[in-house]
């Protein structure tokens, strides 16, 4: 906490949140501005989501690395159950799914917790895949075999494997000589994780704003009716700008490297949103939250983060590598 960079980041984010909250409340109280009330409502609910996200993240950060890992593990678990609930499964998948939920998901997060990159980077793609294929085959139902196993694997990949790269950032050796002392080194990693989440949320938001302002050409009308090329490009540029301004918050990054990371994070977030839209369109629902009434769709909130996390992780690895040399 006594680290000026962390303090600056916290104060900056809180100030930003306070401003957008004030704007949202102002728009809600003055509905006569010719703005779409539905858009204002969704804007305000998004802000509420950010407050919740910030509070939960702050609590996890304060409690430490293990708490953060557990938090992300639970988010993965919940997202995976939304994913699997949405995709039709057959009785023959039941046992495989049980182990996927209660053995593979926790085991993967434990490996991440022990910082075994050599194993956790291959555990689900290789052993998870082999297990799911074999277990479904042994269950003796061959109908649509490849389709069913592919669904379970896709769920594991997106909801568990990809997302786990976000808390894995906490294990990266990014401490520079200036902050090599234990408490500062740890906050440096937390800043890195926070940097990623901030960029992803900002990119999401900018895509919406740019699409609204100048969006004309839809990327794929049959998948998403509000994602445009202009939104994608505008968001990529704005996000790389924000990242280059905030480069000091993310330890090994230089401004130009941060700009590049922001650009890629924005593109990956877009890819994640499109992918989830395609799945939802195929299943005929608008968001994972309406799938079962009363549940806020976790998967709707984290789809961009899932896709951006592994790429950001590897870019950070490269950048840290360059910084050491």
């Amino acid at each position: 906490m006594n680290d000026p960079r962390t303090l600056a980041l916290i104060v900056g984010v809180l100030a930003l949140l306070a401003i957008v909250t004030a704007v949202g409340q102002f728009l809600r109280r003055h509905p006569d501005r010719g703005l779409d009330p539905a858009a204002i409502r969704s804007f305000n609910s998004r802000i509420r989501g950010w407050w919740i996200m910030c509070t939960v993240l702050a609590a996890a950060f304060w409690l430490g690395t293990t708490a953060t890992l557990v938090l992300f593990g639970l988010v993965s678990f919940w997202a995976l159950r939304e994913f699997i609930t949405l995709t039709p499964t057959r009785l023959g998948d039941h046992r495989a799914l049980f182990w996927v939920f209660f053995a593979f998901t926790p085991a993967h997060y434990i490996l991440v917790g022990y910082d075994r990159y050599d194993i956790f980077s291959i555990f689900l793609p290789l052993y998870g895949t082999l297990f799911v294929l074999a277990r479904v085959a042994i269950a003796g139902d061959s109908k649509r075999f490849l389709e069913r196993t592919a669904k379970i694997q896709a769920g594991l990949m997106v909801c568990v494997y990809c997302l786990s790269f976000a808390p894995a950032l906490l294990q990266l050796p990014v401490a520079t000589p200036a902050n090599a002392e234990p408490p500062l080194a740890a906050t440096a990693n937390f800043r890195l994780l926070f940097f990623l989440i901030l960029l992803v949320q900002f990119a999401d938001c900018m895509q919406y704003v740019w699409s609204r302002m100048i969006g004309r050409r839809l990327v794929a009308a049959s998948v998403s009716s509000n994602r445009t090329w202009e939104g994608l490009l505008g968001s990529a540029v704005s996000t790389s700008l924000l990242a280059s301004v905030l480069w000091w918050a993310a330890p090994p990054y230089q401004p130009w490297q941060a700009a590049l990371a922001g650009f890629v994070v924005s593109l990956m977030g877009f890819a994640g949103g499109m992918t989830m839209s395609a799945i939802k369109r195929d299943r005929g629902v608008t968001d994972y939250g309406t799938l079962v009434t009363g549940h806020g769709g976790v998967l709707d909130r984290i789809d961009s983060t899932c896709f951006a996390a592994p790429v950001f992780y590897h870019i950070t690895l490269l950048v840290a590598d360059v910084a050491v040399r």
Partner: peptide, 21 residues
């Protein structure tokens, strides 16, 4: 009761934590 047959189908004793309603 919706989706509970996927949580614990007939003949199974281990539940899969899907969302039900």
């Amino acid at each position: 009761v919706d989706n509970l047959n996927r949580v614990l189908p007939r003949g199974e004793f281990l539940p899969v934590p899907m969302l039900s309603c």
